[in-house]
Nucleic acid binder design. Sequence first.
RNA 1: UGGGGGAUCGUCUAAUGGCAGGACACAAGGCUCUGGUCCUUGGUAUCUAGGUUCGAAUCCUUGUCCCCCAACCA
Length: 753
Amino acid sequence: MTADRPKDFIREIIDADLAAGRHQKIVTRFPPEPNGYLHIGHAKSICLNFGIARDYGGVCHLRFDDTNPTTEDAEYAEAIMRDVRWLGFDWGDKLFYASDYYERLYQLAEELIEKGLAYVCDLNEDEISAYRGSITEAGRPSPHRERTVAENLQLFRSMRAGEYPDGSRVLRAKIDMASANMKLRDPLLYRIKHAHHYRSGDRWCLYPLYDFAHPLSDAIEGITHSICTLEFENNRDIYDWLVDHLTLPARPRQYEFARLNLTYTLMSKRKLLQLVEEERVSGWDDPRMPTIAGLRRRGVTPEALRAFATRVGVAKNNSTVELALFEHTLREDLNERSPRVLCVLDPLEVVIENYPEGQSEELDAALWPHDVPKEGSRKLPFGRRLFIDQSDFSENPPKDFFRLAPGREVRLRHAYVIRCDRVVKDPAGNVTQLICSYDPSTRGGDAGGRKIKGTLHWVSAEHAVDVEVRLYDRLFSVEIPGAGGGDPLADLNPGSLVVRTGCKAEPSLRSAVAGDRFQFEREGFFFVDPLASRPGAPVFNRTVSLKDSWAKAAAKAEPKAEPRAAKAKAPEKPSAREALSPEAQALVERHGLSPEDARVLGEPGPLRALFDAALAFHGNARGLAAWIVNELPPEARAGKPLPFSARELAELSSLIDDGTLSGALGKKVLAEMLQGGGSPKAIVERLGLKQIGDPAALAPVVDRILAENAAIVARYKAGNKNVLGALTGMVLKETRGQANPKLVSQLLLDRLG
RNA sequence: UGGGGGAUCGUCUAAUGGCAGGACACAAGGCUCUGGUCCUUGGUAUCUAGGUUCGAAUCCUUGUCCCCCAACCA
């Protein structure tokens, strides 16, 4: 359904891996820790991982990353499985637990020790932290770093045997205490915890840390693409180090994408837990929670959630998606599947004066609007006493109010046109009753020729069912809770739940059962709460309101609500660009290089060496410099040897200078040289690449392209000068890149006037 | 301050040297027995400054801003 969406960067990588034959089958994994409930951010990850498996005919494992006995629980694991299944994904028999790998992981740790790549460290937590150094200072080696293999092995085994108390010793990888990447400063692999684990019981008093368990679990399972969120980018170095140094059945790769953030929502597991524990919400499945369980109970469908996940896309930008996009996706889905019914949330009594006392009738009412291709209807009783919504009446109607007001007419949906004749008030001046009259000729709502602007939902007082309705709104009242640096929970929306009892529903709703979905016309989409509802007494949760352009227009009359704070344009400090080094300055003066090129070539290194060497064969320093700086791949700068010599590069430059090659052709030749090496002249010869500089030869091609692309030409003439580039590109392509681009451009310009 | 990432309409996301596109949001209009849906139309973006190129969001240089990293959490 959204198959036309372009591929995300992860799928591009997979395509390339498959094309290169690196994998036959794609294996991904979703690795939750069972220490909390899944939220909509996890849903994005689930859709990505399981979606990739589905798209590529691979598999996605569900693996519990349960390496911390003190926070994890079987109940969470159960809830997670329930949620993933509900979302519509199936892991088949690929259900795994890191805790099932404890023995194997332990053996791997011993392997590391035996290779001299891990050691037991007796420093305490504070000391380890102090030894680690800081972002700017290198760490210092632990005093235990140079223990012998035998000693480490003995100590590690004793740790396993339970001979030491919690926190007394850890196992650390021996990597580099001076690494610029803090994660590599001898990361901890195992810690002692005499704690009961929900699965392994009391068998272990030693538990691996994420950085150790995760990559190795991936490798054990043969995961090909291990997809996680951005904050793990630094951890990738440990990941690679471990899988490269251990004897493992597979070599998985980690890729990172941006986690989902949503406005007016919080995604932090810790904060969500706090909401639950402090009873700011009714539980993990409170319909205001962004948890999958909460969304499900609110009435969100798995289809809508999945559609949303594909709509937000997968990229590496830190981003915050507007809640409006989610609501739109939700309405789109609900619109198709929700039968329309009438329910008055805030009742106001209406008496139809000219309708006979004690009489009633049944009206036929379609359950679906004209735009939903579904059949079905129900009976709607009509009588002398009715309810409409308070907000549908105004004694002093504002401009453009086309609901009920004294003396005005409206249509009651599926019923009659009525007119408001009088208003009854209580002593305090509140409107308590509307005395109206109906037009019997408009039965079924057909007003004949008359133009009736407003149509109201209503319900017969005599037949109405009293129901409870829970109106849910966004959990937070600001876009980014805690943005100002304060406690995010201070930004909770006090109006996020309004419980309305005594709502008046049409009688057919008496038989609504848990899990049913409806649209209450002109109000919103509602879901019968599975927990609170009783037979004959449904409780309705508002999943999402209908779009309300009247409310919006009315709000606009009010002083403007604060618009979303525009991203403050960078203040742009006019800091001085760094001065050229003396060496670079010398290049500018001696060879007339541009400062940009000189800056690069002013540094000693492979590029500079290449430049100097090539200069001996060809005198055009500027041209040489531009090619070396701008066109050579980044690896060349890092010192990767090039498959061609300085002499050959000089030869290329002279071919361009003498007009044999255009710049574009030069790039083609360079690409060829990068591929297989060889002399540019030979490549030109072999590929038959020669610049076409004869206008007579090019003119027919230009004319043909122009003739074939009348639409583009028209756009050009209409003022879009950018399409000239597209036309140039076509001519170039047509001549295998051999046309002289300047000439083509000129020819094009001549003809386009 | 070291390292790792990232900067494209208000928001999210495409364009892999050749017409800056789509969705949401917003605005205007149409349709309508839901002020819903649907339809039409519109404005709005390549962080800065240079360079390379016939042509740059894309390649090079420079500066700016944002995020992540110094848990025995994941």
